[in-house]
Simulated assay, not measured.
Amino acid sequence: MGSVRNLCSLKFEVKILEARNVELKSSPSSLFVRFYLHAGSNRKIELNTSEIGSKPDNDVMIWNQSFCLECQGNETAFEELKQESVVFELRRRKTTSFMRKWSRSELVGRGEVSWKSVMESDGMEIERFVVMGEMKDCNSKPLMLKIALKLQASKLVNTKRVEDLCGCRDCNTCNCLDYEALVVACALDGL
């Protein structure tokens, strides 16, 4: 018999809650958060929150926006994820621009959180403020982004394995309970 191939199912939840100490001195603009998730093979997925209008006297911006992604990979992919981080960027787009929708955004601050810190936390979820790096046009208070990250991981057994063990193509006409129990046992052993 061939070996049972285990796959990992990964579900990511990213919440962008708020930014604090947003004290921009320049003209009114819209702010949004861009973040990057590791997608394997040195690739990143880029996601953006909705844009929120900002005024120079605002120091707290609230998004309360969630993103959920699900993928499958082998156990190696799960181990590689421990070496990666989620990179967050607070970005600004001037609202006075005639072609605002197509205008380039400008980096205000940048921070990151390692997936390893999420994996080592209770329930594989965290909620924290991330201190953003260098900031343009800001006062001395550090710009902070409040985020929440959650990771759910489970191992899957290749479903073709049931047919390989049973041999019949119609499990309604025979008693395959023993074969299904063997597959469940293999799945539990793989966990």
Rank of each mutant, 00 (worst) to 15 (best):
Y179C: 05
M135Q: 11
A148Y: 00
S154G: 09
C171I: 03
F129Y: 15
D189F: 15
C186L: 13
D164V: 01
V184H: 10
L165F: 14
L149Q: 00
K136R: 09
E163D: 08
M135I: 03
L182P: 02
A187L: 09
A148E: 02
M135L: 09
I126L: 04
K141V: 01
D170Q: 06
D178P: 07
R161D: 10
C176T: 11
V130R: 01
K136D: 08
R169H: 09
V183R: 03
E134C: 07
S140A: 07
D170C: 02
R169E: 14
L145V: 02
C171P: 15
V184N: 07
L151M: 12
N175R: 03
D178V: 08
C171V: 03
L156A: 15
N172I: 00
N175D: 14
S140E: 06
L145A: 01
C176M: 14
M132C: 10
V183L: 07
D189V: 15
N158W: 15
K141A: 02
C174H: 04
C168G: 09
K146Y: 14
L182D: 13
L143A: 04
A148H: 01
N158Y: 14
L188H: 12
N139F: 01
I147K: 03
L143E: 01
C166H: 05
K155S: 13
L151W: 03
R169S: 11
G167W: 02
A187R: 14
L145F: 05
C166T: 07
L143I: 02
E180V: 09
E127K: 02
L165P: 05
K141F: 11
E180D: 08
Y179Q: 06
R161K: 12
R128T: 08
K155T: 15
L182T: 12
L188E: 10
C171S: 10
S154K: 12
C166M: 11
R161I: 06
Y179K: 12
E127D: 02
K141N: 08
N139V: 04
C166Y: 06
M144C: 08
Q152E: 05
